[in-house]
Design a protein around this nucleic acid. Structure first.
Length: 354
DNA sequence: GACGTCACGGTTGAC
DNA sequence: TGGTCAACCGTGACG
């Protein structure tokens, strides 16, 4: 029985410790910042700690993405099938080769780069466990030796080669069509993806392009499978928001939001539904009992992030009307884009900065 | 008062 | 299958 839980911060906002804010909120933070709203005001308006606002904006400015980072998991493995294959080749061609020599060759041959080249110890382990000593067969290999492709046998579940690929059932696919597979270069994905352009991050294309929307339909992935995971960020070819916005909505369902409207109902994993975010984002920032009785009067009937101006609690009006170019870099959004966003989110953006 | 930074307690997911 | 580990999270406090 999933219990509703959450915590209330000093500003009265509700959050789940350890979990990212809903993408709707993250998007709102960025949007307001783009409009020149000061972070402190954003913090108060959205009832998110200023440290969080600062972090999200800093990340956005740095990476162009509003997405939270990948939570959990392990580092992308460097011993990809391709690497193992090459190591095997090196070993076969020169049984006396040292691990460090293999390492150098991996680099020299471009199989790996400096970011994802296996360590010497890893290479040694590969030689020992996956390939075996070609000159002195590993006794441990005997009797349980896999077929000749055994060293590659884990390819089918190689977790970092499906940047954005999910089967309709949510099963990870090893070789998604149309998606570049860069399994051998995944380690650099620790960085944020450059593919998240500013304009895309704000969801212009995702919101306006039916194909982008359509591409998000029919999936019921977990959060990280949408590209939030570190390993899938890199080649996440779509903008951050079209799916990323879904991410949080999966974790923090906001049924009435436009963002979640792109997600089939089945995307809401019951086990991951935090009741605290079960309502629209407006409920998230609404005064009073934030995590209770949401999705009622605060729900925007027409969708959107469900945060029309009245939802952003009006007890505190923006005190500072910051003009364009005042503090922040000019918004990458055109006026039309702002209007588009405004309409989509059910938000009157002009009210915040006037 | 605004804001960047960091410690903290927490969650997550690959291994 | 459960534990471990290392990533990330947002908050709150400090400067």
């Amino acid at each position: 029985m999933e219990q509703t839980y959450g915590e209330v911060n000093q500003l009265g906002g509700v959050f789940v410790n350890g979990r990212p804010l809903p993408n709707a909120i993250r998007l709102r933070i960025v949007e307001l910042a783009q409009l020149g709203i000061r972070p402190c005001d954003i913090s108060r308006q959205l009832r998110v700690s200023h440290g969080c606002v600062s972090k999200i904006l800093a990340r956005y400015n740095e990476t162009g993405s509003i997405l939270p980072g990948a939570i959990g998991g392990s580092k992308p493995r460097v011993t990809t099938p391709n690497v193992v294959k090459n190591i095997r080749d090196y070993k076969q061609s020169d049984p006396g080769i040292f691990a460090w020599e293999i390492r150098d060759r991996l680099l020299a041959d471009g199989v790996c780069d400096k970011y994802n080249v296996p360590s010497v110890s890893s290479i040694s382990r590969i030689l020992r466990n996956k390939i075996g000593n070609l000159s002195q067969p590993n006794p441990y290999e005997n009797g349980k030796q896999a077929p000749p492709q055994s060293s590659l046998s884990y390819n089918h579940i190689y977790p970092y080669s499906y940047p954005n690929a999910m089967s309709p059932s949510g099963t990870k696919m090893s070789s998604p069509p149309g998606v570049p597979v860069t399994g051998g270069h995944v380690s650099i994905s620790r960085g944020w993806p450059s593919a998240h352009t500013v304009s895309n991050i704000l969801g212009i294309r995702a919101f306006m392009d039916p194909t982008a929307i359509a591409s998000a339909e029919g999936y019921a992935p977990k959060m990280e499978d949408w590209g939030v995971n570190r390993a899938t960020f890199q080649s996440h070819g779509v903008n951050g928001i079209d799916k990323s916005s879904i991410d949080a909505d999966i974790k923090y369902p906001q049924p009435s939001s436009t963002l979640s409207s792109y997600v089939p109902a089945c995307a809401y994993s019951p086990s991951n539904q935090y009741g605290v975010y079960s309502g629209p984002a407006g409920g998230y920032v609404s005064p009073g009992h934030h995590w209770q009785a949401q999705g009622t009067s605060l729900t925007h009937p027409g969708g959107g992030v469900a945060m029309h101006p009245s939802d952003i609690h009006s007890s505190m009006a923006f005190k500072h009307a910051v003009r364009d170019g005042d503090r922040k870099p000019p918004s990458p959004l055109s006026k039309q884009q702002h209007e588009a966003l405004s309409g989509i989110h059910g938000l009157s953006l002009s009210t915040s900065s006037s």
